[in-house]
Design a binder for these strands. Structure first.
Lengths: 200, 200
DNA sequence: GTCTATAGACGGATAGAC
DNA sequence: GTCTATCCGTCTATAGAC
């Protein structure tokens, strides 16, 4: 399909799409093999197990994502601008790594209980710390409404951003940037202190 | 556990909690039987199949929910008040029917492909029509920002409301009403035309 | 209403030929 | 790198005793 992909990467991508669409448990190794045009036993020449496949998908995706989060966090932007950047990068992930985000959204609960997937829980905590910290800084800086419950606001933000993976389709009518603009408009005119009162 | 429940209803409740927690596919009939203190074969004295169990849970819940939606729709409230009432009723469902909402959120994609579950898709459409209609009426009445993209706003609303089932726990620190107040504050101060400019 | 016992299908994974 | 062939565990569901 895409050029320059090793057979292994190609199989990973096929598996990722199936995991994302049908769920990890509900995707059989025979499904993956069928989609790749080979037999199920042949998959084990490339991967140790079905779990290895989903691990590689999630880990490489998350590693890159958190590198970018870290860069934003340590930048010299203000709290609200950082929050906006983090949200934009997250929505971008839905565009660029649709399968991985969908798998994480749908199956993280199941996967994080498995041996070898403890990092999912750890990264979840780090994610939470980053976002709540930015909210608190934004409130302290007067850029975010002081009556916002940080815990609830965090969950609201997190969920509204990531749940978009359920309907957003890369290459669909809306570009990732358009969605980000609209989302941020809805979100910040909700939680940001209004600066202008644009009325039709 | 609860009083006045028939054995059948008791088993349904146990199954619902497991489906909600672990997912439908990932919950075995043995899991359900274990939790109920009986053997798996005995379940089939009460139910035809595992699918029957999840069907009964979802159908009876949704029937009641849509009766209430219909009552709100045909009331004499204004569009924004109707939207607010529909959102409150939905958040209330997360409180009162936590298992059913969680099952629907997590497994509707899989279940709606099964024979006998076509009504899930039909109700989804009805739900969408109701919410987008209220948004459009709200815009026409000047109660909701006219630059809101109705389709995107609908998905935003829908997802932010229902996804709360992932973290909200009945009997937890926040009451359903408190969550609803905060959600509506965040939401409407985002998508509603600001009436006052309360600044700290 | 529950248990014993088991049928029958499907799941992940393996060994070795090609 | 893929195929053939197959093991073995788990799953839903059934039949009939108690």
């Amino acid at each position: 399909m895409a050029a320059g992909l090793s057979r292994r990467d190609e199989l990973l991508q096929i598996a990722g799409e199936l995991f994302a669409k049908k769920g990890f448990r509900n995707t059989t190794v025979r499904d993956i093999a069928d989609a790749a045009g080979i037999l199920s036993g042949s998959l084990y020449h490339h991967f140790d197990s079905k779990e290895t496949m989903v691990h590689e998908l999630l880990d490489s995706f998350q590693t890159q994502l958190f590198l970018d989060y870290d860069a934003i966090e340590s930048s010299d932007l203000g709290p609200r601008a950082k929050l906006e950047a983090v949200i934009r990068r997250s929505l971008e992930a839905i565009d660029r790594n649709h399968s991985e985000v969908a798998i994480f959204q749908n199956d993280a609960g199941y996967l994080s209980d498995l041996d070898g997937f403890e990092y999912l829980t750890a990264r979840n905590r780090r994610f939470r710390d980053l976002w709540t910290q930015l909210l608190r800084e934004g409130i302290a800086a007067g850029e975010i409404r002081s009556d916002l419950d940080v815990e609830l606001g965090y969950r609201f933000l997190r969920d509204t951003v990531w749940v978009a993976v359920r309907w957003y389709r890369p290459g669909g009518p809306l570009s990732g940037d358009e969605v980000a603009d609209q989302y941020l408009a809805i979100l910040f005119q909700g939680i940001g202190i209004p600066t202008t009162n644009k009325e039709s």
